[in-house]
Design a protein around this nucleic acid. Sequence first.
DNA 1: ACAAAAGTGTTCGCTTTACACCCATGT
DNA 2: ACATGGGTGTAAAGCGAACACTTTTGT
Lengths: 230, 230
Amino acid sequence: MNISQNIKVAVDAVVFGYEEGQVRILLIKQKFGVYKDRWALPGGFVLDGESLSGAVERELREESGVAVDYMEQLCTFGDDVARDPRAQVISVAYLALVNPSKLRLRASSDAKEAKWFPADNIPELAFDHNTIIAKGLERLKAKVSYQPLGFDLLEKEFPFSDLENLYRAILGRDIDRRNFRKKLMSFGFLEETDKMRKIGSGRPAKLFVFNKQEYRRLESEGIHFEIKYA
Amino acid sequence: MNISQNIKVAVDAVVFGYEEGQVRILLIKQKFGVYKDRWALPGGFVLDGESLSGAVERELREESGVAVDYMEQLCTFGDDVARDPRAQVISVAYLALVNPSKLRLRASSDAKEAKWFPADNIPELAFDHNTIIAKGLERLKAKVSYQPLGFDLLEKEFPFSDLENLYRAILGRDIDRRNFRKKLMSFGFLEETDKMRKIGSGRPAKLFVFNKQEYRRLESEGIHFEIKYA
DNA sequence: ACAAAAGTGTTCGCTTTACACCCATGT
DNA sequence: ACATGGGTGTAAAGCGAACACTTTTGT
C-alpha cells in the first residue's frame, strides 16, 4: 500500500482527579519545542504498532506515573489543520479518571514536570488543549448524570457527603442533599458499611461502597439510571 | 519535527437516509485491494493539508455524489492495530444524515458502486465496518431522544406520521401516537403549515415544518429536550 | 358502506421537587 | 453550650403512561 501521507497521530488525555473538594486536571510542562514552558495535556505521538488507548496509558505512565481507573475516548481533533504548528497532527483525545489513592505523582522519567490544576482555573495551554479540556468537562458533566462515573474519583469507602460534594463540584451548582441521597440509594448499587469516618467536629459519617457487580448486573438488565437532584 | 511514524489516517462515514419507512445506510463496493467486491463504508485516506471533516465530505462526493445535511464525529477506531490488513490505519468515523431530496446517487467518478442498504440488513463488510455501523446506530438511537435529529432525515414539509414512523424505525419499537405528538408539539419548534398531503385512501394529513431558528433559540436558552413516548 | 389513515383528552400513578429539624461528635 | 457536619420524611406539582373513538378521504 503506497499512499503517501504526512499526517502524524497523537493522543492526549484529560485526566480528572478529585481532591479537597475540587475537580482537578493533570497537566505536564513542556520542556522542549515551540511551546517550551507552557503547560499541556499529557500525551504524545502514537508508536508504530501501538493501539490508541495503549499509547495514552504509556504516555501517562512515562510523564506522570499515573495509572487511571476509567478511560473513554473523547473526540479526535484534526479539523484545524494547523493545530500543531510543527506539522499536521491529529490528536485522539481521551477522558480519564483517577481515584484519590493514586493521585500522587511520580517523578517522571523524562524530566517533565507534572501537576494537578483545579479544573476551574486552567492556564493558557499549548496547542488547542484548552479546547480539549472544555470538551472533557462538558462530557464529564453530561455523563455523571446518567452513569455513576463519579465513584472512580472517590476512595473505595466514602461518606455520602463526599459524593454530594463531588457532584456539586462537577455540575457547578447546588444539589438537594435529601433528594440526592434518596435517589442514589434507590438504585441499589450503594452499600452501607459498618465503618464510620470522623473528621474534626460534627457527627461521624457512615462509609459507603459502590458495588460495581451490582451496578453491572442492573445495567445488563437494561435498567437506566438518571441521577437528578433538586 | 522528525518523529518517524508509519500510521495512516483514514475517515469513514455512516451515512443514514430514510426511505419507504426504512432507515438506510450508504455503502460502497470495493473495486480493488484485499477486500475487492466487498461492501464498505464510504471513506478513505485523509489528504495532506486536509481537515478530517473535509476529507469525509470529499470522499462522499467522489464516491457517491452525496452531500450530507448533518454530520458529527462518531468515534476513532485504532485500538485494533490490525483492523486494516495492509498497514496500521486509524479511522475517524463520522455519523451523517441526508434528507430524502438528496438520496439519489450520482454515478461515481471513480467507478465505485454505491448503494443504500436497509440498516437492519447490512451484509458482512470490509475491515471493521460492521462494528462502526453498530456504533453509528447506537449513537443515532441514543441521540434522537434528546436532540431533534430526525428532521434531517425527513423532507422539509412532512406529515406527522412520517415523524412517528421514523422514530419507530430508529428505535425499533412502537410509540404512542398521541403522547408522541403531544410532547413534540409542546416544544414549540414544529409549525403547522396550511398544506395537506393525501396518499391513497385515508384522511389527508397536515404538513409540518421544523423551525430550526426556534429550536436554536430554545436550545440557547438552556432548555433541554427529551423525547419520550409510551 | 367500508377500509384506511389522521386527529384528538382524560385519568392514574410515579417521580421530582421543595422544604426544616434533630442527632452525634469535638472543642 | 455551641459549632460542625450527618441523617431523615412528607406534601404538592408535574410528567409519563395508558387508553378508544371520531373525522376525512378513497374505493
